[in-house]
Design a protein around this nucleic acid. Structure first.
Lengths: 152, 152
DNA sequence: AAAGATTGATCTGTCAATCTTG
DNA sequence: CAAGATTGACAGATCAATCTTT
């Protein structure tokens, strides 16, 4: 009886993700003093139109709860890397922006992040494998998105 | 300038892993009353020679710290699903085994787990994609294992 | 002293309740 | 009352310190 190919693929994928996450976190932590999640928050802000996003939008992108995002934002505000501000036309909404120090921190973090990916992925998989991996996971995400309800 | 294929593959893989984890956790939680990690602990025990493993070995397999494993084991002992015992020839070592209720719980959990994988992976990717995904991640894990120090 | 497991303090996130604004 | 964010209580793991056994 052959082992379930889905189970095999999943377990490999899951462990590989854990290992890469650990390495990224370790590197970001020692070099910049932030976590992968904190980097991702800054990356979403950096890429957003007007460098500005609402709390609820960020929570969806980072896949954390509203309460969780409040805490993550608290930490980055305390470090002086982001700032809160309220939308003038709807004072319920809180938006976040990068400060100038936050932009610098993100730039440094992004570089370190890329280096870890080179050491963990690019070094071990050739271009074809990486593209194939990207394509299959992209297909999967597309289907899962429809199934679940399309993460924005 | 083309987007970095490693970054693309990694982000897709990372998000896909998070989605599948959430679904597995939700299903195991509602149906069996356990988490993915708790299932994995039981699965390792079930597959082990003599259905018995040392704390430190389990910690390495589950990729958690010794302290973390103590807590996970505490919960499963409290549910009556596993038991602690001490090695007669080295009383520092603590080993875990499944109880009969634990074996039943694991069996139920394993079935639910497989069903979630069918709904999230097998339903959306054909056999070829799954095999390719398994092969590429296996290659990656092989290289990462050597790089890091071979998880047992 | 070192190996192995546990414990207390802490960190990060969740969940449900709450506060504010529309 | 609903939308959006925050807060308190808690869950789950980490880390460093500790205890036991070798």
């Amino acid at each position: 009886m052959a082992i379930d190919p889905a189970m095999l693929a999943w377990r490999n994928l899951h462990v590989a993700d854990a290992i890469v996450c650990d390495q990224v976190n370790a590197r970001l932590n020692s070099e910049i003093g932030c976590s992968l999640t904190e980097h991702d928050l800054m990356a979403w802000l950096f890429a957003a139109p007007g460098q500005r996003l609402r709390m609820s939008d960020l929570a969806a992108r980072l896949r954390v709860t509203p309460g969780g995002l409040t805490r993550i934002a608290d930490r980055l505000v305390a470090r002086g890397w982001i700032e809160r501000d309220q939308s003038p036309d709807n004072r319920r909404e809180v938006r976040l922006t990068l400060t100038s120090t936050g932009t610098e921190a993100h730039e440094t973090a992004r570089t370190a992040y890329s280096e870890v990916l080179r050491d963990t992925l690019t070094k071990h998989l050739d271009e074809t494998d990486l593209d194939t991996l990207g394509a299959i996971t992209a297909k999967l995400l597309g289907r899962l998105g429809q199934q679940i309800g399309e993460r924005p």
